[in-house]
Design a protein around this nucleic acid. Structure first.
Lengths: 244, 244
DNA sequence: CGCCATATTGAATCGATTCAAGAAACGTGG
DNA sequence: CCACGTTTCTTGAATCGATTCAATATGGCG
């Protein structure tokens, strides 16, 4: 559910994929370390809808929200990008979304034109970009399942769980993390109002599943319960997985 | 909203993209016309979740639903694929979705392994695959906005509008089309129940926006109104697009 | 310290769902 | 070709989960 995150999808990916990635890694990583670094303040836009899609970005530190806005102001966040994630993978000449930092952020900027040229000559690089795009698609599909099918409790539980799992992958504490975004951001990601997000967090707290020392700080008290709630163990006797 | 459809996204794409596509078109099209044709009955699966992702498919005739099923049976349709659309664009070794024909369908089958090899040597082909994947991502994002932000009326109106526009692109009547899928399918795409889909269609009919000669046959009576409803002109005085 | 953003909580409402009953459409076999 | 059974669709009534509106509370920051 953390979306956009190539890492978050790695969970479900297969070993050979990583192996292929390694060959390309060298050249691509070189390219990135040489790429200019850009600093963005919280709330500043990295790019906006309609801007020329001149660069591919990689988040170094911080976090960025990707979103579109409907003509009446409703906003759908497509995902949050965290360190290591790539932004701007499309093939369009202009961005069709807004990318806004939700905290001070640093990104590496690669020229889209030269990257495209390089990819035409280097199949390993091309494959790497293809994989990154496929990962973004997988993350978007995850979120689609969430907004299309899940209850508020499942959405919020799943959202929190994604932080726990990301921490786990990164060797950090899977039972304590910070929410860098506002309740409004969470709501606009999950298709809920800010009030519902707040109420649902309160409910998880009163169920002793999480603690909220501060409103942007989460401590997981019962990871199993959180996982069950994300899967829809709201109240009903859990339907046997594949039983008839 | 018709999702997955490379065509449906072409609307929003830019001229140079098509130009680039043309060069690759020749080789790719050759490859496809030589590829074996497979016939699938209605309700038959082209592939299922967990199957080896051995092939890339292109729909020749018919229609296919792409979906995932949650452990408790809820189903999210990610999109419908129509003639010309590509299926199986991922990089994973196994499919992470089900592809089920919703009417008798014919598909061309390309070996994923050989295609991958060819793409490594032919940047134009690689770009074509990349574009197709980007189109699928764009379509999925559209659907995410729909399920995340829109009301039942907006969802159904937008869904119908996609058929109208597809017909328009194909030189067919934009005011008459057939719905190849069931109400259940529509509901599982849009994140609504079958009853809500039915009621909403009835509402559009009683508002004289559409006619339903048969339940799988739609005639648009007021395209403007349908477009307005898809954009959220439910009842409120439509907010000026970009006004402050 | 005090202010403005953000977050929480409550009460009333509303849109969509659920449960339930028919109606229509479809396919199949007589 | 019609009758039948089955599936799909429609419609109604009651319910429920999430939203809306409104009133505090909290907290980050100048």
């Amino acid at each position: 559910m953390s979306t956009i995150s190539a890492q978050s999808v790695a969970d479900r990916a297969f070993a050979p994929r990583a192996a292929v990635g390694l060959r390309a890694e060298a050249g691509f990583e070189d390219r990135l370390t040489q790429a200019p670094l850009r600093r963005i303040e919280a709330k500043e836009l990295l790019f906006a809808e309609g801007d020329a899609a001149s660069h591919l970005y990689r988040i170094e530190t911080g976090a960025i929200a990707l979103y579109t806005v409907l003509n009446d102001g409703r906003r759908q966040i497509m995902g949050f990008a965290y360190p290591g994630d790539l932004l701007g993978l499309g093939i369009k000449r202009e961005h069709d979304m807004n990318a806004q930092a939700i905290k001070p952020t640093r990104v590496r900027c690669l020229s889209a034109a030269s990257l495209r040229q390089a990819a035409a000559k280097d199949p390993a690089l091309a494959l790497k970009l293809y994989e990154a795009l496929a990962a973004e698609l997988a993350a978007t599909r995850d979120l689609l399942i969430t907004t299309g099918q899940r209850s508020a409790l499942e959405r919020v539980a799943g959202f929190l769980l994604a932080f726990s799992r990301r921490n786990d992958r990164n060797g950090l504490d899977p039972e304590a993390f910070e929410l860098p975004m506002t309740r409004t951001d969470i709501g606009d990601l999950l298709g809920l109002t800010i009030e519902t997000v707040s109420r649902t967090l309160t409910k998880l707290r009163s169920l002793r599943v999480i603690e909220l020392p501060r409103c942007h700080e989460v401590r997981v008290r019962n990871l199993d319960a959180l996982e069950r709630m994300a899967e829809g163990a709201g109240q009903e006797a859990s339907h046997a997985s594949q039983a008839i």
